[in-house]
Simulated assay, not measured.
Amino acid sequence: MADRAYEREDLADHRRGLRVAGAIVGGLLIGGFSVAGLAARVFGPAPGEGTEGAVPTDALRQLRATAEAEWAARAAAWEWLDPRNGVARIPVARAVELSLARGFPTRRDPPRPVTARTLR
Rank of each mutant, 00 (worst) to 15 (best):
T66K: 11
N85A: 02
R74H: 06
T51S: 09
A36D: 14
P45N: 08
G48I: 06
A93Q: 07
A88H: 04
P91C: 05
G37Y: 15
A77C: 02
L98R: 04
R84T: 08
A88I: 07
R89V: 00
F104I: 00
R107Q: 13
E79I: 04
E68F: 07
A93F: 01
N85L: 01
F104G: 00
R74W: 05
P110M: 02
L100Q: 06
A54E: 13
D109S: 07
L38R: 15
A46T: 13
R89A: 02
P83L: 00
A72W: 01
V55A: 12
N85T: 00
G48P: 10
G44H: 11
E49P: 10
S34Y: 15
V87W: 00
P91K: 07
A101C: 03
F43I: 13
E70C: 08
S34K: 14
E97I: 00
E79Y: 06
A77R: 08
A101W: 04
E68P: 02
L98G: 01
A69T: 14
G48C: 09
A40N: 15
A40H: 15
P91L: 07
A75S: 04
R112M: 03
V55N: 12
L98S: 01
L98M: 03
R41V: 10
L38I: 15
A59C: 02
R61M: 07
V35P: 05
G32H: 14
R94S: 01
W80N: 04
L98C: 02
T66C: 02
A101T: 03
A75D: 11
A101H: 05
R41T: 13
G37A: 15
T57P: 02
S34V: 15
A36Q: 14
P45E: 11
E68R: 07
T66Y: 08
A75H: 05
T51M: 06
L63A: 14
R64W: 07
V87Q: 00
T106M: 06
F43Y: 15
G32L: 15
G32Q: 15
T106W: 00
T106S: 02
L81G: 01
E97D: 05
V55W: 08
S34I: 14
P47S: 11
T115R: 09
A69H: 09
P91G: 04
D82Q: 01
R41K: 12
A73V: 11
L100C: 04
R102S: 06
